[in-house]
Write a protein that binds this DNA or RNA. Structure first.
Lengths: 345, 345
DNA sequence: GTGAAAGCGCTAACAG
DNA sequence: CTGTTAGCGCTTTCAC
């Protein structure tokens, strides 16, 4: 039933050459005469030869496999990141191994070990924790590492992150052009992202010489419910804000729900820091996604590829600012179950 | 910098035994005396030994890697399927290689070949096409195959699919209990799924002795725009339907958008065949997701594992009916970027 | 129970 | 340019 795969020796025999020569033709890294090359290639196609990457990898010590460890692909944020990584790796001939950590330390560690055991070439990691030891192990066992989204103190790793403060400032400034009464629904001040985004919100205000009404600055917990309740309280104010800058996607969804429930006669303009799934914008016309998640993934993959090419490279930190174009490449025109995706504002 | 990994021989030397013995201890498949076993285990932990899965795989000819080829993980339908697969594979010690085909034949084929080259053990495939030859190649090169979502004529493969007709009937029946005026926004009659779902819609009607108004049955193209336009036309009717059964998730989102635009005084109850992302239900309270996507993934992974264990097994077709419980296992309580997920109605 | 030896399929010296 | 040889790290007969 499962016929044994043709192997390199078979090709060699048929072409009347040594295995080494076949290997050389396949890899194209050593001089081979045109005629033998042709004979080998014919033999290979005749036999439908496909190289055993595993064996090749064992010898050359790489696998062309890259691990991606994220809390949860089901989060639209990471879904897009993963696609960005995958599309980039694909053209470079790498395959992606997906791992969901559920923000769980143990799972994360377990995966990292598994990935190293499998001799993966590298890993893109959205760290659940700030546990550096684990990462050092990974690197020690030969994995190239790129961090995304969350930074790890010490800065010894390639990192791709978002320009929290700057982007927050720009997004808020956009709202301020329409009105001075702009609110902020933010995450907990215990997280660096929330602090930075709030700072950007303030920056935008000071550069137009306005001090925001403290009542309009709500700190909640980065959850859907938090966003919902915050939105509700804003809508119930005597003078509701005319624009709201919301600190992450989950809270933005909660805010949308509140909006749907309340149906205010004049709805405030909403800006979400993170992108919402493409179709969310169809529900409340003014919703805006800001964070170029897909590109974040792309960039992470590119960094990893660079490090693979030159392991002694200085670690760099790439800061992605809000989208200025650069669409997703393999964009699918819709089909049975295809989805079209938002174009950023 | 990158210290060479400890290998099996090192452990053997330190324990004062032969490599063969170490291997036996590691695999636990051959008799080893208790005392040597202990010595080997100590040596292994002392040295922090981790097996090179690649080398082991080359020898034993398996990789514990499973490919998953779907049109697009960014589609909430597949996102959940992938999580279902991943969670199941994880506990069995397998890793998941993610491939997005974008419903593109070439990409799909390319991936299938790559996966075979990498000697993956198996693949879960949501086929973009009905090209059987390609699948036969895959199987011939030793891949175990499980099909999901879309069926391939001939039935020679393990398949997990959804009870299109039955579920459509049940969902429609639900709407019919509230009112006799129920509409259907369906996909193209060229697809088996659309035909089956329409049949279920009709079944529900005949069992209550009602023949649906032909005007209420709209065939469109499984796209967001199609759903939007269909919804709009339904809302503009003199007597709009009081319930609508919508054939897939993308069209349901379009319908939601139309609803948001039109803001009718009395909104019809909506039922979407596919699940929407968890938060969509917050936008229009009556939205219902039906297809237990996560479980579909779980089941597919289980089937694959079974086939791996016994390759000569008869191919089976598993039909999943709409959710009757069975929550996702690794469900994360929300966190910085975690999302809570919908509970099915 | 344990060791020696051969080999999974491919590639990298090293000759010629 | 091309063939021969050795070996990546692990597992598995086959002896003892």
């Amino acid at each position: 039933m499962t016929a044994p795969r043709t192997k390199l020796v078979d090709v060699a025999r048929r072409a009347g050459v040594s295995p080494a020569t076949v290997s050389r033709v396949l890899n194209g890294n050593a001089p081979v005469s045109v005629s033998t090359r042709a004979r080998v290639q014919n033999a290979a196609t005749d036999l439908g030869y496909r190289r055993n990457t595993l064996a090749s990898g064992l010898r050359r010590s790489f696998t062309r496999l890259i691990g991606v460890v994220v809390p949860d692909v089901a989060n639209p944020f990471y879904t897009e990141v993963v696609r960005g990584i995958e599309d980039t790796l694909r053209v470079a001939g790498y395959l992606l191994v997906l791992c969901n950590s559920d923000d769980n330390q143990e799972k994360e560690t377990e995966y990292l070990e598994l990935l190293a055991d499998q001799q993966l070439d590298g890993v893109v990691l959205a760290p659940a924790s700030t546990d550096v030891a684990k990462l050092e192990d990974a690197v020690a066992s030969g994995l190239a590492v790129v961090l995304i989204d969350r930074r790890i103190p010490g800065g010894a790793y390639d990192t791709v992150r978002v320009a929290n403060r700057d982007d927050a400032r720009i997004l808020t400034a956009g709202l301020l052009t329409a009105s001075r009464r702009v609110a902020h629904i933010g995450g907990p001040h215990t997280t660096s992202t929330a602090v930075e985004r709030l700072a950007g919100f303030m920056d935008a205000h000071s550069s137009v010489g306005v001090y925001p009404d403290p009542e309009l600055i709500i700190e909640t917990d980065y959850t859907e419910l938090g966003g919902h309740d915050a939105m509700k309280s804003l809508l119930e104010m005597e003078t509701p804000p005319s624009g709201i800058f919301i600190g992450n996607n989950v809270m933005a969804l909660g805010a949308l729900r509140a909006l749907a429930e309340e149906q205010p006669s004049t709805a405030p303009a909403l800006v979400s820091f993170d992108p919402l799934p493409w179709w969310a914008s169809s529900l409340h016309p003014v919703t805006v996604g800001a964070q170029p998640t897909y590109q974040l993934g792309q960039k992470a993959a590119e960094l990893l590829l660079l490090r693979l090419a030159d392991p002694s490279r200085e670690p760099t930190e790439v800061v992605i600012t809000h989208d200025r174009g650069g669409a997703r490449s393999g964009d699918s025109t819709s089909s049975t179950s295809g989805l079209r995706r938002e174009r950023d504002a």
